[in-house]
Amino acid sequence: MKLCDENTIGVVAILGSTFDGSYEPVKEICAALDALERESGLDIPVHVDGASGAMIAPFVDPDLEWDFRLPRVASINTSGHKYGLVYPGVGWIIWRDTEALPDDLIFWVNYLGDNMPTFALNFSRPGAQVVAQYYTFLRLGFGGFRRVQGYARDVATRLSARIAELGPFELLTRGDELPVFAFTLADGIENFTVFDVSNAMRERGWQVPAYTFPENRTDLAALRVVVRRGFSHDLADLLVHDLERQLPRLQKQPAPVHDATTWTAFAH
């Protein structure tokens, strides 16, 4: 809040973090901005980057207030091709009302004799993804989305609990917000790194990314698992089994082989 001033066009709240799957407290951020407005008169709108969470929270956390129920939320974006359950590339941006999208940003295209409003950074792209999004909405409905996302969260929380039981790992999150969790090595493990674990899992074809956290916590290196549609309890069991099989060899190695500097950067 202390970084907000008259030049702040808006505050971005993230639902949820791609690093560990946790939700940011959108309601609390809005409340803090309400207090700021009472003190200073500054009226700062909020944009929610709901790339993943905007298609999870409505179905499995319906009581969590993070959306347009909060008057300060001006716009929300999500990714149709993440938990919107469509192949890449489709995203969505929704404004609270027509007031929140200034008219002079809308581009009126006189196309083949008709005048159409558009707002985009690019122009031509196939209609397939939008059609597939509509199909998915029709096909699943609210109940279907609740079932699919609820199952993903069941798989994520059970898998994180099983990984915690293996011993050498410490959970940073449990997968009980986004069905995504991060874990690191328990204190005292010096002879292998999370990067070694990621490398060992690749031998069986698993891609489990290892990465360091952003500024202020770059000392923390972790592994992350994203559970999404198609990743079943069975696959989760296979992953745990393979992790279990790799551990004796890692525990016997004399010194770390990979660290953040010998590892291909992972960005999502």
Binding site: H47, N77, G89, V90, A120, N122, R125
Partner: peptide, 10 residues
């Protein structure tokens, strides 16, 4: 509106 992904939307 729709976009190519959540980055363009954001």
């Amino acid at each position: 509106c729709s976009t190519t992904g959540s980055s363009e939307a954001a």
